[in-house]
Structures are given as C-alpha cells and as structure tokens.
C-alpha cells in the first residue's frame, strides 16, 4: 500500500496536477455564484443556526455548548456528503480527462476530494474561531486538537472509498444516485450529529461501530471540545473500516471503472 502511494507520487508532475485540478474544481464550485467564497463559509453557519433553533430552542436539548457540538459534527458530515453524493457521477462529468489519454483515474478522485478538503479546512478554521471567541463556556485551544488531523485522514479515506464504490456502481446502474441520496438521509439521522451522545449510545449501541461516520464525529468532539485523547479502539476500528472499503473500491475501479470510457 505504502509502496503504491510513494511510487504514485514520486518523480513526475502528479502532485502539481492534483493541486491544479483541485484548485480549478474549488473555483468552479464557489466562484461561479455571486456570494463566492462567502457561501462556503456561510453554509455551515446557516446549518448550525437551523439545527440550533430546532433542537435547543424548540426541543430544549441539554447538551452543553450545543452550537459547537453541532458545528463540528456538521462540517465533518458535510465533507462526507460532498465527497460521496457529489462524486457519484464523477466518471461521467470528468470524462473529458480520461477519454483522450491514459491518465490515471485515481487522480480524478483525489483531486476532487482535495478540493473538498480545502473547503473543509475553511470550515474548520471557522469552527476554531467560533469555539474560541463565541462559545465561552469551553476553554481555548490545546495541542490535543491536532488529533483532528488523523481523524480527518480517516474520513478522507472513507469518503474516497465510498466515492470509488458508488461511481463504479453508477457505471452499471444509474439510479444509484437516488438510492444513495435516500441512504445518506437515513445515515444523517443515524449519526450522532445533534443527539446527546449518551442517548445515542444507549438507544443504538451498535451504530457507533456500524456507522463509520459516528466514530469519527465522536472522536472529533473528544479532541476538539473535551480536550481529551480520542477513543483509540474506535479510532483504529474506523481506520480498518475505511481501509477495507478502500480495498473494495480499488478492486471495483480496476474491474468496472476501467471500462467507464466505453460504458458511459
């Protein structure tokens, strides 16, 4: 695996190309509309506001620092949805890249996810500012916050894996787009995004593990808000989960994705 990655990156213009494609993708997404980059920053804030009103003002949940609690959950979730639902049709929309040359398809996926990562980075910076200046119940930053990096890497691998799997299924069955939409809607409510964690674990104990996002969100809150180490059992479980899916995704890309040029 590591050998594959290094041989992939060393000695060519691949890194440059990934960055170029990611930048263009990012620009296409945000600079095409009137609000521009502001929209990227506004969206998570608006999401937080909506769920805050529903769960805090109306349903009177008693989670402390609920806005931050929502915020970190939602930006992780948004990255996941953008990178999976947003890429189901990637082999179709990015056909122009591989139809006329022997470009590696993996680069198309990586650059799109990289572009989403730029968005995530903006959101995370907003979250950190929010946490420090607005949410005054909690104490400021600590080195433990850096644990968000490996957690994000796991989320990245997981999203990449599902993106590979879904876009390959799309080659064979177009309605995977709709099916996945329903599935993510269900998954959203089965993730501990706005529930109190204890309540979530008590009602649906198995889901902490079955739902791969749940573990990542739980751990991200630990390291960003509770100033504690992540739950390592959960962290390694999620890593294994993501790597397993990635393996399936890579096999599918080789078997089905390779035929995309003739099937789509």
């Amino acid at each position: 695996m590591i050998k594959m990655i290094t041989s992939f990156l060393v000695g060519s213009n691949k890194l440059e190309r990934l960055w170029l494609l990611a930048k263009i993708e990012f620009k296409l997404r945000y600079y095409e509309n009137n609000l521009g980059l502001l929209w990227a920053l506004l969206k998570p804030l608006m999401d937080v506001a909506i769920y805050y009103i529903v769960f805090k003002t109306i349903l009177k949940t008693d989670v402390p620092a609920f806005a931050s609690y929502l915020f970190i959950g939602l930006i992780l979730w948004n990255f996941f949805v953008e990178s999976t639902s947003g890429t189901v049709q990637i082999l179709q929309t990015k056909k122009y890249l591989y139809e006329y040359s022997n470009m590696n398809k993996m680069e198309i996926y990586l650059s799109t996810l990289l572009s989403n990562s730029i968005g995530f980075f903006f959101n995370l910076s907003m979250f950190v500012i929010f946490l420090n200046f607005i949410e005054t119940d909690l104490v400021g930053l600590s080195l433990l916050n850096l644990w968000i990096v490996p957690l994000f890497v796991i989320l990245f691998i997981l999203s990449l894996a599902l993106s590979l799997i879904l876009s390959c299924i799309y080659v064979l069955a177009k309605d995977i787009t709709q099916i996945w939409q329903v599935f993510t809607a269900a998954l959203f409510f089965l993730s501990p995004i706005f529930y109190k964690l204890a309540l979530f674990k008590e009602s649906l104990p198995a889901l902490t593990y079955i739902n791969p996002i749940a573990g990542i969100i739980i751990n991200a809150r630990k390291v960003m808000m509770e100033k504690s180490l992540p739950d390592f059992g959960l962290l390694f479980f999620d890593l294994g989960y993501a790597l397993l899916l990635l393996l399936i995704g890579l096999i599918m890309l080789n078997k089905i994705g390779a035929r995309a040029a003739e099937k789509l």
């Binding site: 060519s12 170029l20 494609l21 263009i24 890249l97 470009m103």
Partner: peptide, 8 residues
C-alpha cells in the same frame, strides 16, 4: 493548463 498537465 489542465490538458498540458495531463500530458505530463
């Protein structure tokens, strides 16, 4: 830029 980069 994209085509040039894809071409190596």
């Amino acid at each position: 830029y994209v085509s040039g980069s894809v071409l190596g």
